[in-house]
Amino acid sequence: MFKYIQGTRGKLVSLTFEGRALSAVEDDSVASALLVAGEKVLRFSPVSGAQRSPFCMMGACFECLVEIDGVPNRQACMLNVKEGMVVCRQRNLAEATRS
């Protein structure tokens, strides 16, 4: 597990991931907040549907793409969590087109 070396210090905010309620430290990126919450899989590859998780944490690899408040293709490592944020896994394209 990812753990805070000195406990969670900052203000906590509430958000949901795939409908599950989570609390996260205000200054954390969406990607690190989800990793702390034990969520490794943030998206499914649009090619094979394979599960993917954050990889570079600096905005280069786009492996952490999620849907935030209904907007797809958001880089979870580049955006900070906010109170009331609704985050969903980015589904594979074929699946999204079918639904």
Partner: peptide, 16 residues
């Protein structure tokens, strides 16, 4: 992940 990504989480969030 990359090792750099782990270090980013340590620097930015105090996470290990």
């Amino acid at each position: 992940m990359t090792a750099g990504a782990c270090q980013i989480m340590l620097k930015a969030n105090g996470l290990i």
